[in-house]
Design a protein around this nucleic acid. Structure first.
Length: 607
RNA sequence: GGGGCCGUAGCUCAAUUGGCUAGAGCAUCGGACUGUCGAUCCGAAGGUUGCGGGUUCGAGCCCCGUCGGCCUCGCCA
């Protein structure tokens, strides 16, 4: 090799004025080139560490300068030269801006085609193009920082939990399909034609088994797979910080998890987070915020105005109340300045969420009195309007938004509205981290479709001790020993204390209309293990992608995943999923459905 | 599965009410330039307006279908 690129003296972000005079070897990519004619050429060389300006002078190094002139963006090169001070020409924008390297020798390690988009910090390209050329996208500063942030988060979690005595144990990727919950990704097997493994939705059952095995503190950075529709914060394969502890109750789990989060925020991002975190019962979260993951960085609580609204002449409200529903409202301080166009726009949008409309009225001051105006104000006679204003704590200049109907629907609409208003009107304070435990969720929920009770969490979640006697008589009142950790309106993770007693587990399955035979068929390994001295245990799983996303300041987990998939679970880089050979299918004993074949043929003919 | 927004040069965008040869910035290529660092200056090249159909004298624009992307509801124990 012309230049010993395997003996780089440092990376492109480290050289300073103190290094002037040193002979250095650098390697990296051409970030930019500036050709000043016969004598002078500049190349900005970039690697993971940063940028270093390389100077080529034809008078002193004609060969190198000649070659430098042919360099283009994203060429991979190695250079050798002397660190010199820039004198009058320091660049304060660069950490290395005091120096440059006067290049004596340059070697092109590999030319680059013209990139399909500019490899620059400020990116303009569409995300799907960036995903197709992810290896180029990942060269960009913000992406490098995001991936590095993720690494720091991972490392901090490991350090913390290892220091707390947690054992890192791997669990199978090929495992058993469980039809409950999310859809499984299935894996066929040549050795077992007609049978399938499933990729784990989480290591849930295995980590419980590890507790029964006596490894009383377990953690794993675990890949999980769910074949469901995607979102900005959901990928088909994602990563959990999975943990489980034996001989614990709720407080033990919350304590160690919140300390781990505080440690990670400090270590990875330098942010101090006070512990313990606030706790809020699920009912309170739903009542005040209409959400099981409320964002506490701003106010705009939901206020129940069912009583007042029921006395109004507005038919929508009266109907809702008569049908046993609720009317709730939020007050937007200073919202009176919103234009008709803005509120009409919100109406259309909230209809997209499912609401019939967006009733509202403005609070104004007139003749020394505070009154309601516009919108549905006319349905509130003076006295009633006063009651409403008092209930809302509204002041002149505010706007009151309403939602009426079933409790769940009202929550959905006003939660959407609260979040949307906070974002649009910039009511979200920067740099604030509002951690919150949401606890005491119901164990069961009545499902209208199947006309039976279904579990809200998973079927191994322990009900609260004092609620156990009511499991059969009043299932709706049973609260679970389960907990969600939320920060700034984002659910970071959830967990529970598990059932460690076979009798309780059987009672619970019976209650849900699942026979013992059925339960055994699905969960034989767990149910059997429960009978051999299973210890009390519980745990939690944290969404690593979301944590990395929040600490990177992005709003999509795709930004902290090196090779993510699109919303339709397609990878533009590898172009997967893809078709496979007929031979592969034959070996697996699999035939495609006729309609799938027909569709494929039609697509081929078109192409 | 439902709703919304979007698709024009390699990239990001523009194109008046449906009307002349579809434009601009960046990137690319050629040339100039000794201190730039988002270099600058001069010039060139670059288009199946995602795809298919329809309406029209005339479609980037209107209509229908389809493909793809993002957001969202459902879904995600």
């Amino acid at each position: 090799m012309a230049i010993a690129y395997n003996k780089r003296t440092c990376d492109c972000g480290t050289l300073r004025a103190a290094d002037v005079g040193r002979q250095v070897i650098l390697a990296g990519w051409v970030n930019n080139y500036r050709d000043h004619g016969d004598n002078l050429v500049f190349i900005d060389l970039r690697d993971r560490g940063g940028l270093t300006q390389c100077r080529f002078n034809v008078d002193t190094d004609p060969e190198a300068t000649k070659l430098a002139r042919t360099l283009r963006k994203e060429d991979c090169v190695a250079v050798r030269g002397e660190v010199i001070h820039r004198g009058e020409n320091v660049n304060p924008k660069l950490p290395t801006g005091e120096i440059e390297v006067s290049i004596q020798e340059v070697e092109v390690l590999n030319k680059s085609l013209t990139p399909p988009f500019e490899v620059a910090d400020h990116v303009e390209a569409n995300e799907d193009l960036r995903l197709k050329y992810r290896f180029l996208d990942l060269r960009r500063g913000p992406m490098q920082r995001a991936i590095i942030m993720r690494h720091k988060v991972t490392q901090a979690f490991r350090t913390f939990y290892y220091n707390e005595g947690f054992l890192d144990v791997e669990t199978p990727i090929l495992t058993k399909s469980t039809p409950e919950g999310a859809r499984d990704y299935l894996v066929p097997s040549r050795v077992w034609p007609g049978k399938f493994y499933a990729l784990p939705q989480s290591p849930q059952l295995f980590k419980q088994l590890l507790m029964m095995s006596g490894f009383d503190r377990y953690m794993q950075i675990a890949r999980c797979f769910r074949d469901e529709d995607l979102r900005a914060d959901r990928q088909p394969d994602f990563t959990q910080v999975d943990l489980e502890m034996a001989f614990v109750d709720v407080d033990n789990v919350l304590d160690v998890v919140e300390r781990s989060l505080a440690y990670v925020w400090k270590e990875a991002a330098g942010i101090e987070v006070p512990v313990p975190f606030r706790r809020m019962p699920y009912d309170e979260a739903m009542r005040d915020y209409g959400s099981d993951k409320p964002d506490l960085r701003y106010g705009m609580k939901l206020i129940d105005v069912t009583e007042v609204a029921g006395r109004s002449e507005f038919k929508v409200f009266r109907d809702a109340v008569e049908r046993g529903g609720v009317v709730k409202a939020i007050c937007l301080t200073g919202g009176g300045e919103m234009t008709r166009k803005e509120t009409d726009g919100l109406t259309v949008e909230i209809q997209g969420v499912g609401a019939g409309g967006l009733p509202l009225c403005k609070v104004v001051s007139e003749g020394g009195k505070t009154i309601l105006q516009t919108g549905i104000a006319k349905f509130f006679p003076e006295g009633l309007a006063g009651d409403l204003i008092a209930a809302m704590g509204a002041k002149p200049g505010d706007v009151i938004f309403f939602a009426a109907g079933r409790f769940g629907d009202v929550c959905k609409y006003l939660n959407w509205l609260r979040i949307t208003l906070a974002e649009r009107r910039k009511l979200v304070p920067a740099g604030k981290w509002e951690f919150l435990w949401v606890v005491d969720m119901p164990s069961f929920e009545w499902d209208e479709e199947s006309k039976q009770w279904i579990f809200l969490h998973h079927p191994f979640t322990m009900p609260r001790d004092e609620d156990l006697p009511r499991m059969e008589s009043d299932p709706g009142s049973v609260r679970a020993k389960c907990y969600d950790i939320v920060v700034n309106g984002v659910e970071l993770g959830s967990g529970s204390i598990r059932i460690h007693n076979r009798e309780v587990q059987s009672r619970l399955f019976r209650m849900l209309g699942i026979s013992d035979e059925e339960a055994m068929a699905k969960f034989v390994h767990l149910l059997t293990a429960l009978q051999y001295g299973a210890p009390p245990h519980g745990g939690l799983a944290l969404g690593l992608d979301r944590i990395a996303m929040l600490l990177s300041g992005t709003d999509s987990i795709r930004d902290v995943i090196a090779f993510p998939k699109t919303q339709r679970a397609f990878c533009p880089l590898t172009e997967c999923p893809s078709e496979v050979d007929a031979k592969q299918l034959r070996e697996l004993g699999i035939d495609l459905a006729p309609e799938v074949k027909a569709k494929r043929k039609a697509a081929e003919n078109e192409a």
